[in-house]
Design a protein around this nucleic acid. Structure first.
Lengths: 225, 225
DNA sequence: CGTGTTCTTGAATTCAGTCAACGAATGTGG
DNA sequence: CCACATTCGTTGACTGAATTCAAGAACACG
């Protein structure tokens, strides 16, 4: 298994602030894992005992609402970390992580990270900064969720996916999500999401091929109200 | 002005992890301020240059959505801190703070806090923990916002206010909010909030006297769906 | 091939937002 | 202290948005 100190993915997250020695120690106790599309990495309510670092692939972090529907709270991608929040507050996971792709992830045990947090101010400050950013993002999403229509949120989600994952060679969104996933990100019923997508299609704003989506008129999406 | 090292409010927030000397230094550079009900403490987009510590009173943290409506993201109370997120990520404020009561607040300049964050691991870890908790709360709210009905959210808000602020001598909620505030917490139109409140009233779940609200049947509120 | 999942559409219904109007409460200046 | 203006709370009627239920088509997979 490759070593953390040589891992390029690290540059995208807080682990980049660790010293060489710290990385070597982390590397020594980490474990790798391959995850297939659709697999659950961890579940809401589960004790995590460490953090995950995503080497490859994408996953969704969801939370089950009381009415039994999953709500996607965040998408995590290559270079991302998962489980920091639970680790820091010493709680069980608040979210469920499900792979949207085939993935490769690393697991770093809790104690190692806690030690580094205590000893390396750069690390704790970086984690603090990223948590602050996550908090801002969450607040922004909250406001969108509360104040915008399903149509607006879906338009924003499409733009988000395009910006974050770009297009594939044919111009389709590089990250392919099911209609269900879209609905669960936007916070609506699957049929509602589908209905709006087909409306966008009719208006020439997007085109589709199976579950793949191509954005034809980005400006129009930005103008949706 | 009273000194931080003697301030009892500190025990409710991260400042409690500071050493006596650090507190003395903080105390020396802090400034106090009295804020009247309805006053704006800081605005979205404003540079904060420090953090606020609430000595007395309650305020709402809101964010303006694109459609021009304010959404309440959080209520901050006695002992709470505001502005940490912006300080940590070195950004302008993401939220507007408006006093719901007459308040007393203290302001501690940025540099002082940043120094302490660098030097005192207990402090940075505590802040990290609290930020993690805020993030969890935000995620939970997000899911509620996305998946629950206005009625459910309003019921939860009433329960939240009761639990967090308790009742006054007559059994009315100790924190009196305007119908507008309730609507803005729940993320709905004022009339919708009013309509549901009068429905609760008709069902004997709550009673009202002017803008004051008394919860008559807490269990019924918990059962709302 | 079936068989199950995912996608799609229709119709009926419920939910929530908007506009309009009015009374009650609150605050202000004379 | 009163008259006025202003805000806040309340309700009705209407419209549009979104959910639900139902059913069929397309697709994926063993």
């Amino acid at each position: 298994m490759s070593k953390c100190e040589h891992c390029i993915v690290r540059q995208f997250n807080s682990l980049n602030t660790l010293t060489r020695e710290e990385l070597v120690r982390v590397s020594a106790c980490k474990t790798g894992r391959v995850v297939k599309k659709g697999d659950i990495i961890f579940r809401e309510g589960e004790a995590l005992n460490g953090i995950y670092c995503i080497r490859e692939g994408v996953c969704k972090l969801t939370k089950l609402s009381e009415n039994g529907k999953d709500q996607v709270v965040k998408l995590s991608v290559k270079g991302g970390m998962m489980g920091q929040r639970s680790l820091v507050s010493n709680e069980c996971s608040n979210l469920t992580a499900v792979a949207l792709n085939d993935m490769q992830i690393c697991f770093i045990p809790k104690q190692e990270i806690l030690d580094d947090l205590q000893k390396n101010v750069n690390f704790s400050m970086d984690l603090l900064k990223r948590m602050a950013q996550d908090l801002r993002d969450a607040d922004d999403s909250l406001v969108d969720m509360a104040q915008k229509t399903v149509k607006q949120r879906l338009a924003e989600t499409l733009l988000y996916v395009k910006n974050k994952f770009d297009n594939d060679a044919d111009g389709y969104l590089a990250l392919t999500l099911s209609r269900d996933d879209y609905a669960s990100i936007v916070g609506t019923a699957t049929e509602s999401a589908i209905r709006i997508l087909s409306q966008f299609k009719k208006e020439g704003i997007i085109s589709t091929k199976g579950k793949q989506i191509k954005i034809e008129d980005e400006q129009a999406l930005k103008r949706v109200e």
